[in-house]
Simulated scan of single mutants.
Amino acid sequence: MSKIYKHHLFWPLCVLAALLLFNLLYSPDFFSITMHDGHLYGSLIDILNFGAPLMLVAIGMTLVVATKGIDLSVGSIVAISGAIACLTISKGTDQNALGLVTFSILLAVGLSIILGAWNGLLVSVAGIQPIIATLILMVAGRGIAQLVTDGQIITVTSTSYSYIGSGSLATLPFSIFVVAIALVIALLLTRKTSLGLFIESVGCNPTASRMAGIRATVVIFAVYIFCGVCAGVAGLLLSSNVSSADGNNAGLWYELDAILAVVIGGTSLNGGRFYLAGTVIGALIIQTLTTTIYMIGVPPEITLVVKAFVVLAVCLIQSETFRSSIVYRRHKRQDTMKKEVARRVS
């Protein structure tokens, strides 16, 4: 029982279950799932579908955090990727042409690789602190996205492109399969090869890792590229789901939600051990919380405040130090009461 209690997934799963239970009590049909035209619909399906972009970004962020880094530019990469894809499709004569859609996707992903490589070069080669290196692209990237869209919202009418974010495969949203593929690739690379140990080693002590023969520069460079690709694909999911690209608002604050998902999932910001499954659960907690806030009718102007307090509570519950201090104080109070009772009896 103690092993289950101390498992890194125990508290995130408890929090997710508590949120789902609250939604069930508030709305009895919350768990209901219906089938229409071969597609599944329901609140749970919506959480998975709308949470897919955040899960993708958080998976990439996990590996970056494991190297004791941070990537604040993922929201901007999301915006740039969606903007480039939609702009390319909108310029075509036949927006449903498979070749045009494929080219736009490859172009967006290729640009995401370049942006991720830029962050990796600044951090691993130039030696700039990750928070500063990625802050540069966070600011400049949002401007680039607005330049691509010319400050307007680019809309497309391509059914082939919209399938990425709003289509279904085997009755489930296609976006879920995209996340599953990214998660499987990340798990295979980090748990079935030595790459995972290299990442954890670099995150714990990069100097000792270099002395042990690990090319820390290459490892850091690679994780930032992977994070950029995840953010780029997330941008495709977001823009295709609404068939438009908004350079100003697309992916806004995604970097903060991704970092929260990583922390809630049990990965420390100090680097080292990382938990991809925990990150996915953390992203589901954030998306479920967002759905809950909108469902109970919290005013939009205080939504972020409510979300911040709930996330703070989740992090405190998950903190072993915080739980230990509460237990210590309770035991100390009980001992004081026992001594007081014994003194009065004597």
Rank of each mutant, 00 (worst) to 15 (best):
H8K: 15
H8Y: 14
H8D: 14
H8C: 11
V15Y: 10
L20R: 00
S27M: 13
F31W: 06
G38D: 05
G38N: 03
I45Y: 07
L54G: 13
L63Y: 03
V64S: 04
K68H: 10
I70Y: 08
A79L: 04
T88D: 12
G92K: 01
F103P: 07
G116T: 05
S124E: 01
S124D: 05
V125N: 05
V125H: 12
V139K: 06
A140C: 11
G143E: 04
Q146S: 02
L147F: 13
D150N: 15
S166P: 01
T171R: 14
F174K: 00
I176E: 02
V178I: 15
V179M: 10
S194E: 10
S201W: 09
A212R: 06
V218E: 15
C227G: 06
L237Q: 02
S240A: 08
D246Y: 12
D246L: 04
Y254E: 07
G265Q: 11
G265W: 05
N270R: 09
I285V: 02
Q287K: 11
V298D: 07
T303R: 15
K307S: 09
A313Y: 02
C315V: 15
E320W: 14
E320K: 15
T321H: 02
R330I: 07
H331L: 13
R333A: 09
M337S: 13
V345G: 00
